[in-house]
Amino acid sequence: MKTTLEELQVFITVVDSGSITAAATQLGQTVSGVSRTLSRLEQKLATTLLRRTTRRLALTEEGSSFLVHARQILAAVDEAEDQMALRRQQPAGRLRVNAAVPFLLHVIVPLVAGFCRRYPKIELELNSDDQFIDLLEQRTDVAIRIGTLRDSTLHARPLRSSCLRILASPAYLEIYGQPKTVDDLTNHCLLGFSQTESLNHWPLHNAQGERLLIKPGMMASSGETLRQLALQGIGLVCLSDFLTWQDRQHGNLVQVLVEQTLPERQPIHAVYYRNTQLSSRIVCFLDYLVEQMTWPD
């Protein structure tokens, strides 16, 4: 084979990062070195993979086709390495995990030290994103998704579920009073999500008996940001237990409209693209999450 794995990795990294300079930084190489590797690959293939201008890179038709095969080749190499690690019963190598910022901070990060002690040869790479990502494009091994799954092309493993509650800080309630009915919410500042409208459906019934869609007085894209706003006494918020149970335990957030709140739980899944046997790294990580994730129901 004329093409090397290093050349494939450089090509994919340039495409994913959007520039030769960004790829060089990510790979720990010089810009000139990455450029030479890319040129060498194109010479071997006798074709142009990327059109270069002073402002951007663009895949040629041949480059788009080759990119698909390059990803498959590196995935196959990863699979082979996984199988060797599994044979040795010593899971090893890099595991790329993606999760929304709140889940990453409040659930995964506190478990990292214990996981690394148990599996010292697994190199965790933790990436956060509050929007759904393409696992292949982002070279992600496993993503944690909260809520109803929509992508049927993904394999999923249920991990747990988490209850939704409507909360406010004691300082906010002292100033503005505690809502007694759903209609009382019109007199309060409601904190909602800016990018996903479905998250602004609170587990309450409106006057028509339908699930309540709130009109936020303040919005943010991240549940962690909304949590911080609620802790600062800005308004009422609807968030999941995995994010807020310690706040409730310490009295920093108080549940309101308890009797009116519908018993709704958000499912939590791990999703991945692997069609064959899961790598030992993924299995170990997910087993550890299920074993260690704790918050009161």
Score class of each variant (00 low, 15 high):
D134C: 01
C116M: 14
Q138S: 10
I108N: 09
L136Q: 04
D130M: 07
I122M: 10
L126Y: 05
C116D: 12
N127F: 07
P110R: 12
P110C: 13
L136H: 00
V109Q: 15
R118E: 15
N127P: 00
D130S: 08
I108W: 11
G114W: 04
R118I: 11
Q138W: 05
R117E: 14
D141Y: 00
E123L: 07
R139W: 03
F115Y: 12
P120N: 13
A113S: 14
F115T: 05
D129M: 01
F115C: 09
E137T: 11
S128I: 09
D129Q: 03
A113F: 09
P120V: 03
Y119R: 00
V109T: 15
E123H: 07
E123F: 01
K121N: 10
D134T: 01
K121M: 12
Q131M: 12
L124A: 05
V109A: 15
Y119S: 02
F132H: 12
E125H: 10
D134W: 00
G114M: 02
I133N: 08
P120I: 02
E137I: 07
R139A: 09
L124I: 02
I108P: 01
L124G: 08
N127S: 10
I133Y: 06
L124Q: 08
R117D: 14
T140P: 00
I108F: 11
L124N: 06
S128N: 11
R117S: 14
P120Q: 12
F115E: 05
L111N: 06
V112H: 08
V142G: 03
D134R: 02
L124T: 02
L136P: 00
R118P: 13
L126V: 06
R139H: 05
Q138Y: 07
L124V: 02
S128L: 07
T140Y: 00
D141Q: 01
R139G: 03
